[in-house]
Amino acid sequence: MQEENKKLSFIERMKQRAVSQQSYGGQAENSGANTENATCPNCGAGRAKQDGLTHCAYCGHPFITTTLTDGKYIKKSDNSNT
């Protein structure tokens, strides 16, 4: 390895190290646009916006017992407990 390095110019060694060095936290990953959803642990249905934020809109299984307040994406009006 050292003999190999001797043949390379210092710029080439710099380049080799820059390219081969592992990034902290691993390689950067590219991800495309996609969706996920939270499902009801009881029946597996997706969580619905209007009537399913606090309990399942399909089987009635309660998710949370807190009363919702206005946020950026979830509004007080989405509260399905009331």
């Binding site: 590219n30 991800s31 646009a33 996609n34 969706t35 997706g46 969580r47 619905a48 994406y73």
Partner: peptide
């Protein structure tokens, strides 16, 4: 990432826009 509701079944999808966005 943001919630996007389906206009048909009203399911709250968690939209992940990806690295480009």
């Amino acid at each position: 990432s943001a919630y996007v509701a389906c206009s048909h079944c009203q399911t709250q999808n968690i939209f992940e826009p990806g690295t480009i966005a």
